[in-house]
Design a protein around this nucleic acid. Structure first.
Length: 636
RNA sequence: GCCAAUGUGGCUCAGGGGUAGAGCAAUUCACUCGUAAUGAAUAGGUCGUGGGUCCGAUUCCCACCAUUGGCUCCA
């Protein structure tokens, strides 16, 4: 047989050989680092025996698939250590994940807690040192069930029973420990030299909250201690960008015990928020949107018509006014619908784009609140677009381009998901089909890569979601575009067509920021508080060298404020160095120092954020520089 | 909501069965200063809340609230 390698070279063998054998044949060094391989493009175990001509690629821990195999082995080592230390614990599942691995265990409460990590890690290191050879074997399904039943592992039995009949079930054995596993795995426990358990958490069996909660231990693993140390240092650095920490430091927002999930915007955070909104208004006006504002609280009857009372009631805050039920709006759409219906509409009005910066309230469960990212009241930069079926694809494309252009300003990377019909939904199959195809077509025509999220749509229609990343790589849904045939029908919305007949419009719900609160959270973490100048709550700090120059500094500051720049005077009786330090800590982009020289010449000596260099400029010249920076919305 | 951890002055944190400490911030005074912390003094906390155990609780136990990491859910 002929084995073709990644570099195009090939090797011939007269009899079937394992990938591991061939790898060793290529190079001992490569073999030492090999974790898995790709045979004809498919990720396989190194133990896989190749009998025919094939393309072979050896995967090391530098390759994502190789690293996955490596860390999957680490998760087995964790399970083995747990079984040694706590034989009564039952095994569930243990895959590798983006930054490491986890394993789910069923145990009595309090058995597996983070204070046991030292002990568990010590046992894991022992297993690594033992250099246990990892062997793969398969069993027919019934024997596999019997095997795991014999080991008293009910979760494994359930997993096997759910596998297709007639399939050979694969197992991996290392020393006394055997686990049900599809693989691939590395060949021995020995290379897993740098392991760290990172956290413990509850996780439902099969991810279903009706099932038992298991204990999940998260960890990560590398080939070298230095790589692990580097990773942990990187995580520590990333945590310094946490919007909750920076939000406090820069006095942007606060969340008080008196209002869990209800953020307060402080003066500086309010500038950030308003600046974003100003820009948003400008762009939307330019793009044919008109703005409305609808009440925060509306009658139960409205929510019954919209379907929210039946489908969203657990998340709504309600009250009683004059003996009648009211709900605080969790969404803006029904209000928008009433505005649409407030007068007769013509086909000439469509697409009608009604935008609203709507403050919505949703009762999120206590455990899911997270700084500004997940709150109980937030401002959606909402818009509802009423249009005809033939206008759908074009309009969706326009919105996608709009969202893309917004995110590009900040340099955000995002990924797109298309979510389809959920179980708890309203509307006909035909409408769902039509709506989903409309979204799909727009994405396809724009050549935008996306993943499909089956069953994850809103109860009234499918959606396109835009996801942004926070400092730790967790993704948050921000922009979304939802197509809705239901609400226009429920509310009996109409327009008069060219034919003089009444027709039903289709509705698009869309947000760009998503929630302004969440978007600001992402913004803070993305820039680590070093916002582009146009967004900075304070753009310039004017610092007099001593009290003698406070008056002059005040004049400079006033001039900057007159030029519509956000400038602050630091008139405190402190040394220059002290005030500079503080201005830097506040990530202020321009520090303007004035003393005798500047007083004589009518200049300012400035320091730009990120630079130690001092430049003396005329005041007008400085104003021009800052204005240019603002106009371009440039990031640092 | 579920699993686990945490909760000490405005902030960051130490301590610990005999009713609390540091640094920064604040206030006052002195210095009048040229690019990442001038010095001194003063003030500030019933140790998240409510119960319980104990001669005595901030410390131990229970409940609740909030926060953090996950799960589930979601903008």
């Amino acid at each position: 047989m002929k084995i073709t390698l990644k570099d195009g070279s090939s090797r011939d063998y007269n009899e079937p050989k394992s990938a591991a054998y061939i790898c060793k044949d290529i190079s001992e060094g490569l073999y030492r680092n090999a974790c898995a391989c790709k045979i004809n493009g498919e990720v396989c175990d190194l133990r896989t025996v190749i009998a025919d001509d094939a393309n072979l690629e050896i995967l090391t821990a530098d390759d994502p698939d190789g690293l996955r195999a490596f860390r999957h082995t680490a998760s087995h080592i964790l399970a083995q250590a747990i079984k040694r230390l706590y034989p009564g614990v039952k095994l569930a599942i243990g895959p590798s994940i983006a930054d490491g691995f986890y394993y789910d265990f069923d145990c009595e409460p309090g058995v597996l807690t983070s204070d046991k990590f030292d002990e568990i890690e010590a046992e894991m290191k022992k297993i690594v040192k033992e250099d246990l050879k990892i062997e793969r074997f398969t069993l027919p399904k019934d024997e596999a069930v019997a095997f795991m039943a014999g080991k008293n592992e009910p979760y494994k039995v359930e997993l096997i029973e759910n596998l297709p009949d007639g399939e050979e079930i694969s197992f991996y054995k290392q020393g006394e420990f055997t686990d049900l596993c599809a693989g691939p795995h590395i060949e021995s426990t020995k290379p897993v030299k740098a392991i760290k358990l990172t956290s413990v958490a509850g996780a439902y069996w099969h991810g279903d909250e009706h099932n038992k909660m298991l204990t999940r231990i998260y960890g990560t693993a590398f080939r070298k201690q230095s790589e692990l140390d580097e990773y942990l240092a990187m995580i520590e650095e990333a945590k310094k960008r946490d919007h909750r920490k920076i939000g406090k430091e820069l006095e942007l927002f606060a969340i008080m015990d008196e209002g869990p999930g209800f953020p307060f915007f402080l003066p500086k955070g309010m500038i950030l928020k308003n600046t974003l909104i100003d820009y948003w208004r400008e762009v939307h006006t330019r793009n044919g949107y008109v703005e409305i504002s609808t009440p925060i609280m509306l009658s139960r009857k409205l929510w019954e018509t919209s379907g929210h009372w039946d489908h969203y009631k657990d998340n709504m805050y309600t009250t009683v006014i004059d003996g009648e039920d009211f709900a605080i709006k969790p969404m803006n759409c029904p209000g928008s619908m009433l505005v649409y219906k407030s007068k007769p509409r013509s086909y000439k009005d469509l697409p009608l784009r009604l935008a609203e910066l709507g403050l919505v309230h949703r009762h999120e469960k206590s455990g899911q609140l997270h700084g500004l990212m997940r709150v109980r009241c937030f401002t959606q930069d909402d818009a509802h677009i009423y249009l005809t079926q033939s206008q759908i694809t074009d309009e969706i494309k326009k919105i996608v381009r709009l969202i893309d252009s917004f995110y590009n300003i900040f340099g955000f990377k995002y990924h797109v998901e298309l979510s389809t019909r959920p179980e708890n939904s309203i509307g006909s199959d035909e409408d769902w089909e039509l709506a989903t195809e409309g979204l799909r077509t727009a994405l396809d025509e724009l050549n935008l890569p996306y993943v499909v999220n089956e069953g994850d749509g809103a109860f009234y229609g499918p959606k396109i979601d835009f996801h942004l990343q926070d400092c730790l790589g967790r993704t948050w849904q921000c922009g979304t575009i939802q197509l809705d045939f239901q609400l226009p029908m429920r509310f009996g919305a109409e327009y008069v067509g060219q034919d003089g007949e009444k027709h039903r419009p289709i509705m698009i719900h869309r947000v760009v920021f998503g929630s302004i609160e969440r978007f600001i959270g992402i913004l803070i973490e993305h820039f680590a508080g070093k916002f582009p100048v146009w967004l900075c709550p304070v753009q310039i700090k004017v610092i007099p060298v001593s009290e003698k120059y406070t008056e002059f500094a005040g004049k400079v500051n006033a001039k900057l404020i007159d030029a519509k720049l956000r400038s602050e005077l630091d008139a405190r009786d402190e040394k220059v160095g002290y005030k500079i330090r503080e201005a830097r800590n506040m990530r202020i982009p321009y520090i303007a120092v004035v003393g005798e020289n500047e007083l004589q010449n009518g200049t300012v000596t400035i320091r730009r954020r990120g630079s130690e260099e001092q430049v003396t400029l005329g005041i007008e010249e400085f104003i021009e520089e800052v204005n240019n920076k603002i106009a371009t919305k440039a990031n640092d």
